[in-house]
Each structure stands twice: as structure tokens, then as C-alpha cells.
Design a binder for these strands. Sequence first.
RNA 1: CGGGGCGUAGCGCAGUCUGGUAGCGCACCUGUUUUGGGAACAGGGGGUCGGGAGUUCGAAUCUCUCCGCCCCGACCA
Length: 451
Amino acid sequence: MRLSRYFLPVLKEIPSEAQIVSHRLMLRAGMIKQQAAGIYSWLPMGFKVLRRLEQIVHEEQLRAGHLPMLMPTIQSADLWRESNRYEAYGPEMLRMRDRHDRDLLYGPTNEEMITDIFRAHVSTYKELPLTLYHIQWKFRDEIRPRFGVMRGREFFMKDGYNFDLSKEDALHAYNRHFVSYLRTYERLGLQAIPMRADSGPIGGEDTHEFLVLAETGESKVHYDSKVTEIRLGEREINYDDVDQCKSILEEFTALYARTEETHSEAEFTHIPVERRRSARGIEVGQIFYFGTKYSEPMRAVVQNAEGQTVPVHMGSHGIGVSRLAAAVIEASHDEAGIIWPEAVTPFHCGIVNLKQGDKTTDAACETLYEKITQCGLEPLYDDRVERAGAKFATIDLIGLPWRITVGPRGLKNSVVELTSRRTGKSEECPPEMIPDKLTKIYKRTDDHPSA
RNA sequence: CGGGGCGUAGCGCAGUCUGGUAGCGCACCUGUUUUGGGAACAGGGGGUCGGGAGUUCGAAUCUCUCCGCCCCGACCA
């Protein structure tokens, strides 16, 4: 993409409504524009990041064997009356009425709807286990939306639902999600710590939240500092392996890590003093096992091998995709702006032409642009007629992980500069070598399952 | 919902107390000179002062009312 043809309304000054760093940077980098309290437009570059996050979440769900689908944003109130949540959900639910006076709502979550789909089409245990998910906009009419897309009223969420014959099967689904979530966050370059949490209005027995540590996080958390040393890493995972999934869950939950709601001071004091940590975190996901809470009232039942009709065991699982954009920025930025992890960056590199209009530098940039594009990578070429400082400031602000600086000074020696946004370190090399270097860098994060 | 604050050009703000018909910086347009970390100069375009009602010869400014947004608190991906 050529910057001169792109729509990237960057701001030099910080809009006054933004309090936290991710919100400020998303506004300054021209990623989002507020349309109402807690409701945002995603401008081209923000949208690009959102789609990359969505893509990675999809890939990891597919890898775990979960099936993508799409449910509508608007739901009928009748379904919610069946589960008795229409009244129980309270004013957080945005209710509306159509021209025939039918009660509708903008879905805050989809347990009822997925259960409706399940009961309409599944009647035998032979179709189990089944896990369906979608990535769709939700609306929760928060009392006080804030912090940009971190706590929007409208937000983009992956929500999945598993249906199993027995509690044991459903707990495996729980563990499987646990592992797939860990993998998802690690791919995004985020450290998200699983913590035992409170089940809230979704209800249920077992639940873990995944939290990214950040000063601006809204949740208070308490943990043993050793949990931050555990990584999933490159290990092979077989999502059908019940024991493996269980042992990974046990490995990650053996050490103390709780949100404020489930915190126990008594247990906390068993941790050696130097390892006790109380901090704040951003909740980027949560998984639940809730048994037959919805399947019983909504009659989502199957016949088992003995011919008995039994309610299915269910769980639900969510990742806040739009919130992830803010969480990544909270976890990865500096004074100059955003620092995108390679996995989610909107463009793979920026090409900065220091002397736009100069035949030699223009030609060098064009060639680089073409060659890099041919490698399947997407460069953002700053071809504006601007001074070097302005171009550097823009490219730093929007946070592309790699910058290629092309100027007459370097070209005299047949070199361009490759600079890491994260470390600030530069190396000079002939432009012909750049595509290969970038390809190697991105090979590490280019991790698509065949699905 | 309780408490606090704000609404003036795309963004950041002054002007409001003490009424006299709107200004500054950035951004934008034109030109000249510049050009390896947000250039300088000159010229220029852009505003129903959140909406409505009232007071007044006259309202961004005073009064009433509605709307929107932000911050602190209880709830949540």
C-alpha cells in the first residue's frame, strides 16, 4: 500500500477524551473513531489489525477442532424468556421492538441461540462431542463505557459453545479450550495468565479468566510470580488427547493465580513473600463449564446409548477480539507509539523514501515495494512528499515492526537501512537482500493450519 | 444511577466571570526556499460558538430547558 493512496488520519495531538495509552494510540494512529459512547468505527488500519486478530483466533479454533459459523446480532426475546434470562440480564441488554411490536434484543452473548440451534438438529449422542463458535459483534449496554475499545458497549467477540454427553467429556472440552486459548495468546505475542475467576451472570461451576498484566487493567489480580515463567512454547499438541490437555491445564493452574473475586488471603500467604504479586490485568478471555444450566430449561437433549433422553453438558468460551487490539498495544508500545508484534501488524514493513521525487530513491523504493510484495508480504510505502522527521514519526507511531529507510546517502553505497521498531537497531544492507530477510522474519509467525 | 467536569474550525485550546457580532497553535490549500528525526516565510480557505426557548437595542458570554461527551464509584469479553 502506498501511503499517498491510503486513509491514515494520524493525529499529532492527543484527543482529550482518551485516558489510557492504547486508546490514545489507537486514535492518534488513525485506527478508530468514536461514534457514540462505547461505539467505534474501525478505520482502514484498525480494521486490518482487527481482521488479523480475528484470523489468528479462527486458525487456533480450527486447529482445536471447533466449527466456525455465524449467528445474527439481533435475537428474539422469546429465546431468552425460555432460559429466564430476559428479565435477569437487566439493563445491560439492549432491547428493541420491531414494527410488529415484537421484542428483540441486540445479543450480548449467544447461549440461548446456540442451544436453540442444537436442539433443532441434534437428537443422538452419536453427533457428540460438538463445539460450535462464531466471531460476531456483541452489545452490552455498559453503565459506563470507557478506555476506547477496551470497554466498548459494542465489541467483537469470539464465543464458542461445546455440547457433550457427559461431564467428563465436557471437562475435556474445557481443557481443550484452555490450551487453545493459551496458544492463541502466545501467537499474538501476549502473555495471558489463566486465573481462577468468578462465573458472573453466565453461571456455572468451573471458570478461568485469561489476563494480560497491565497497569491500566481493570481487574485486580493476585498471583505467584512463578506463573509468569510458564510458556506453552513449541510443544506438539493433540487436542484429542484427554490426558495431555488435562496435564497442560494442571501445569498452568498449579500455582496461585486469582482475580480479586476469588482471591483468598489465607492461601496467598502460603506463597513465599518474594513471589507474591498483586497487580492489575486486562481480561482477554474466559472459559466456562456450566453443565446443564441451559440444556435443561431449553430441552437440549439427546438419546444416549441406552436409549435414555439426557440433557447435554455444555460450556462456553469467549475471547474479546476487539479488546485484544487494545491489550496488545497496552503490552507493546513506547513513547513514540505502537510496537506491533509481527503476528498482528497491519503491514509487514514500512518503506520510508527520504527524498521523494528523486529518481534514484524513487526507483529504489519502487523496486523494493515490488519485490517485497512478490514475497507475499505487504509493505506500507511512505511516498508522501514530507521531510524525513515527519515520515519517521508517522511510521513509529503506527508501529510497523520493520522499517526500511531509503535515502540518497545510503544508495550512494548501494545500501538501505533495515530498522527494528522494537529495538531501534538498524543494519545496512543491499536492497536486494531485504525481501529475503523479511521473509525469514515472518516465516516464524506465519503459522497457518490447513483448514 | 450517585458525584465531578466539559461542549467554540478536523485536532488541541483561549475568549464566558465583567454582553458589543469570534481568535491562537497544529492540520488543510497556493507559492518560494528547505530536505537523514514532526521545516521556515508569505498568502489563503474553513466556525449554525451542542440544540431549543427566553432576557436584551445587541448573546459564545446572562437565564431556563433538552442533548452529547469525559472522569471517579458499583457491573462486565
